[in-house]
C-alpha cells in the first residue's frame, strides 16, 4: 500500500466526517469512528470511487472487513 493511497483515503474520510483529525489505520472499522452508519458507509464508498476514479462493486463492499481491505482493494484496482 503506497503512502499516497493512504493519504488520499484519509482525505476522503476527513471530508465525509467533516473532521480533519481523522487518521484511519488498516485495522479501523465502523465501530471505531462515531457516526459511521449505513448512510455514511455508502458515502465512503462513493467518495473512494470519485477520488480514485474506480468502480467498487457490491461484492467487494460485502467482503471488506476493515480499512486495510479497502486499501488493498484500491491498490489492486489502481495497479490493474
Amino acid at each position: 500500500m503506497s503512502h499516497n493511497i493512504e493519504e488520499r483515503v484519509n482525505g476522503v474520510f476527513r471530508r465525509i466526517f467533516k473532521n480533519d483529525s481523522i487518521q484511519v489505520q488498516r485495522a479501523t472499522t465502523a465501530k471505531d469512528i462515531a457516526g459511521w452508519d449505513s448512510i455514511t458507509h455508502l458515502h465512503i464508498i462513493g467518495g473512494m470511487e470519485e477520488e480514485f476514479n474506480v468502480e467498487i462493486t457490491g461484492f467487494e463492499v460485502m467482503n471488506m472487513e476493515n480499512v486495510g481491505d479497502l486499501f488493498d482493494l484500491l491498490t489492486d484496482k489502481l495497479a490493474g
Binding site: 472499522t29 465502523a30 465501530k31 458507509h41 455508502l42 457490491g58 463492499v61 460485502m62
Partner: peptide, 14 residues
C-alpha cells in the same frame, strides 16, 4: 450490525 447492516445481512445469507 455495523457498517451497512443490509449488506452484512446479504453477505451472511450468501
Amino acid at each position: 450490525v455495523n457498517g451497512i447492516t443490509a449488506v452484512q445481512a446479504f453477505k451472511s445469507t450468501y
